[in-house]
Design a protein around this nucleic acid. Sequence first.
DNA 1: TCTGGGGTCCTAGGACCC
DNA 2: TCTGGGGTCCTAGGACCC
Length: 410
Amino acid sequence: MKKYIFHIDANSAYLSWQAVYDLQHGSNIDLRNIASAIGGDKSKRKGIILAKSLKAKKAGVKTGQPLFEALRACPKLTIVSPNYQLYMACSDEMMSIIQTFSEKVERFSVDECFMELSCKDPLTIAYQLKNTIYKTLGFTVNIGISTNKLLAKMGSELEKPNKVHTLFEDEIMEKMWPLPVNELFMVGRATNKKLRKYGINTIGQLAKTDIEFLSLMMKSHGRLIWHYANGLDSSPVKKDSRKIKGIGNSTTTPFDVDDIRYASLFILSLTEMVALRLRANNMMCHVVHVSYHRASQGGGQGRQRKLITPTDNTNTIYKIAMELFKEIWDEGPIRHFGVRVTMLNTAEIYQKSIFDEKNLEKKRRLNKHIDLLRVKYGSQTIKRASFIESGIKNINGGIHEEYPMMTSLL
DNA sequence: TCTGGGGTCCTAGGACCC
DNA sequence: TCTGGGGTCCTAGGACCC
């Protein structure tokens, strides 16, 4: 029996999952059969498209597009706000089905995973898996089959939806090389631009380019994409999902911020979320980062600081974040804030500060209690006085306010 | 082009140590 | 004192992914 790698990818994941959920809860409209999209927030005019139906795609709706632009392209577009809790649950269900086929499964993102399996007939297995997911959960997937992760992933993206593709070494020339170079994994906007400048327009042309030339142009990244273009990849399917390296939240502000009081409130609200997630993961951080972006014309700065003693305390992180922010802010108008912590360790083995030990433990317990109340009764339960009547959410970042804060999501 | 937000990895340069 | 060189740590910023 030979060893094969499968890449499984849910088709328009958010939209399919929402459609299935709606049907199961009495809706007589299948979002997949109309011009529809997932994205934006409650007000419907803000935010971007996260997923779209085929009909919406045909009308010119694109992923990543601002909502107003999508509505201009397709005025009849039905827009549904994202429900991340639901998507997490669907992702878990999909994973558990895949795990009945093989023990070696690596979750790559919310809607994608790799599976390693030794078998005689990988195509039959793939169809079985695809059908089982459809019968059990009601949505379709694409599956790519090959001998390494890169080819499996490229394979699953060949033709959508609801398809199984093989992409073995002897099929690379025919199936992968004619594709535009930007469709290669790890060739994004910047790399695409560079390659096109040198007349490298297809994956095949990239594969035939001298690796030393690419290396000169893009260092290790050049070597990487040359290997990928030639179908070469030896990274293993990692059963245990990788450890979290950092936790961050950021937000675009609804108005230009040029007042330190507002800036500090945004930074505090982001810190609340970051610190909450940090504690929910039972971790401590060694580094705090802060960043901001300009209102227009890009521009922006960041600064980080390494701590002598790790922390999971909201106030400590906030204090450092503010120090850093004051160091880099030139008092110009800001439209985007970010707070991030990295160099994480588990909280159990953190090195206790020599000083102030009792106080630290007391603060940690207080933080934990506040977390519990907020998870149980909602983020509004406990609010710092400074937020009252400020018009700024007391906790800010990614996860929607109207959904309970679930540790599984964090 | 940026629209949004949450991530990871890489590189270059400076500080510091031996 | 800046002559030599190697190594590590830290920070800022860019590029990529979903």
